[in-house]
Design a protein around this nucleic acid. Structure first.
Length: 552
RNA sequence: GCGCCUGUAGCUCAGCUGGAUAGAGCAACGGACUUCUAAUCCGUAGGUCGCAGGUUCAAAUCCUGCCAGGCGUACCA
């Protein structure tokens, strides 16, 4: 908000200069207000003079001097305005402007940082979307946490968010799951069984088979049909998955079954539609989609010669359906192994006459697991992977969420099992939560000492003059902008880094200065600062689904 | 071969649409608890931002070419 004020003032000075013919309007829209790295360079700076100089072949420092003269008149906001370096103009904002940020923070309390920039735009966030063939692995965990945190950020910025889980219970994978379950069932009964070569070897299949034996005895032993086995396995595994997600405080608004697309004829309809447009053809008994017309290297099969569709076809139908359901923005969270599907789906919806710019795909790289400094290899089929559940039992939801959010999606994420499970105290999540708990503790102490906060209007906030205090106030002021950009860029990791930075500032301040001191006026001012810090810690933690404990 | 992602301190990673002296945590070393929680703090040390060119007043950031790693490149999902 302070940044916006500065931008406005800067714009008006720019226009004024154009009218006075000090410079042309060539630089309009290309100069920026930015945050300098060093305190000596002010609170904000602008590169306007250098941009103008580049276009007009004038001396940047001369232009900067003229700009500075205009800006210096705004004493309601600035202490001073300086020219520096090659032609930067640095703004030094008055202390009382920073001090005044406490009021909106405390007034808005748990809504501080939220906004309406999303304008109620309907967003569908699709994530996890794992087929029910086994428990959620660490890789799914990253996706679950990433998707849910992105959804939370979008909600906080005024979007109308739907969380959706898309799955397929009809494909080859599921048939193998049914066969695997049947084989284990027979095995438990002591009967001959043929475990499929590429079957699911996890212990959980035995659990499901045991339940079947307990419920049905050997009544299924002559059933050649794998469907009852598949259905039972699916039911159990899905219950397990939703339970795991619930433990992480992740809930979906809808589960979309791929099968329903076939039932409604929506898959066939895509083919008919594309055929009308001349974008599909038959070759070698298969049906091909002319993806080359959309900039790709080669055409792709959408229906195999066996008559079965490839994954592309239902995916295209599904995405068209999302758009038909009235969503303005489709956010898909995919693992990097799904890269190949993205261009096909985009080409598909474009071919069908829909706007593919409404689709944003967040691709996250893989999670590598290390234990004792060595990488652990994982495979769902061989069931030698670590599940989200197992991890949960060892470290709890906050550590899981925090670990997965500490990296941007583009980076491969190394999950150090020793660090996560061993000494949980070394974990940075506690560093942030501890700051929140300490702030609460200060407030409790004040109550014990019978010190109650006087109304904010009566507090002498001008007592907050320490550099540490000014820096924290500046961070508080920047929080709403941060939430906005983290939401629009779908980058929850920025919230994490902000919180770690602010926690560092606060811990340092805490060790050096007393909030509750002999000076009653100063104590009041600092108690209000503490309250606004606590609010921002709370809001930041909740925004990415972390808890904000009051004591630790 | 081609496409996407990554390469920044010993390790794990930030660095927003190019900006002025590249940051943090861990690990290492030395300090701080009769004061609001030491799950904390203070200090020291650590860098040719993979390499080479180019664009720009300004490049870790943009462009090109190499090198290294990951994921894809199926009539598997």
């Amino acid at each position: 908000m302070i940044k916006e004020q500065i931008q406005k003032i800067l714009d008006s000075c720019f226009i004024e200069g154009v009218k006075q013919e000090l410079w042309s309007d060539g630089a309009a829209g290309s100069y920026t207000v930015e945050l300098p790295k060093h305190a000596s360079q002010g609170d904000y700076s602008t590169n306007m003079a250098m941009i103008m100089a580049g276009r007009e072949k004038k001396n940047p420092r001369e232009l900067a001097a003229q700009l500075t003269a205009k800006l210096s008149e705004h004493t309601e906001l600035f202490d001073k305005v300086e020219i520096a370096g090659p032609g930067f103009v640095n703004f030094f904002v008055r202390d009382d402007v920073w001090q005044s940020v406490i009021k909106p923070v405390c007034d808005q309390a748990y809504t501080y940082g939220s906004s309406e920039i999303g304008q109620n735009k309907k967003v569908l966030v699709e994530f996890v979307s794992a087929n029910p063939t086994g428990p959620l692995s660490i890789g799914h965990g990253r996706q679950a946490v990433l998707g849910d945190s992105i959804a939370r950020l979008l909600e906080a910025t005024g979007h109308d968010v739907t969380r959706e889980y898309y799955y397929n219970d009809a494909g080859r994978q599921m048939r193998v799951l049914g066969q695997s379950t049947r084989a284990r069932y027979m095995e438990i009964l002591g009967l001959e069984s043929d475990f499929p070569e590429d079957g699911y070897q996890g212990e959980y299949i035995y659990d499901i088979a045991r339940k079947l034996v307990a419920e049905k005895g050997d009544s299924l032993k002559d059933t050649e049909d794998v469907v009852p086995f598949k259905e039972r396995a699916e039911q159990e595994i899905f219950a397990n998955i939703t339970d795991t997600l619930a433990r992480l405080d992740i809930k979906f608004d809808s589960y979309y079954n791929e099968h329903s697309l076939y039932e409604k004829g929506l898959v066939d309809d895509v083919v008919v539609n594309l055929r009308e447009k001349g974008l599909v053809y038959d070759l070698d008994g298969a049906v091909w989609f002319k993806t080359t017309e959309f900039g790709q290297e080669k055409d792709r099969v959408i229906i195999k010669s066996t008559g079965e569709p490839t994954y592309r076809l239902p995916d295209i139908a599904y995405h068209r359906e999302k758009l038909r359901r009235g969503f303005d923005w489709l956010v898909n969270i995919f693992g990097s192994d799904h890269i190949a599907t993205v261009p096909d789906v985009l080409a598909g919806i474009r071919a069908l006459g829909y706007d593919d710019s409404k689709v944003t795909v967040v691709l996250h790289q893989f999670v590598t697991l290390t234990r004792e400094g060595k990488q652990v290899k994982m495979s769902t089929r061989k069931a030698n992977f670590i599940t989200v559940d197992e991890l949960f039992d060892e470290v709890g939801p906050d550590v899981i969420r925090f670990f997965f959010l500490m990296r941007k999606a583009d980076s491969q994420l190394e999950f150090d099992l020793d660090l996560a499970t061993r000494e949980s105290q070394e974990n940075p999540v506690f560093y942030v939560q501890y700051a929140n708990a300490r702030l609460r503790s200060i407030q409790k102490k004040a109550v014990e000492k019978n010190i109650t906060r006087i109304p904010l209007e009566k507090a002498s906030l001008d007592k907050l003059t320490l550099p540490e205090e000014m820096n924290m106030l500046k961070a508080l002021a920047a929080f709403p902008e941060l939430v906005e950009s983290a939401a629009l860029d779908l980058s929850p990791h920025r919230i994490i880094f902000f919180l770690m930075d602010l926690a560092g500032q606060f811990h340092s301040y805490y060790n050096r200065h007393l909030v509750i001191s002999d000076d009653p006026e100063l104590t009041q001012a600092r108690l209000w600062l503490a309250e606004s810090l606590r609010i921002v810690f709370h809001n930041g933690l909740r925004l990415v689904g972390l808890s904000a404990p009051e004591s630790m």
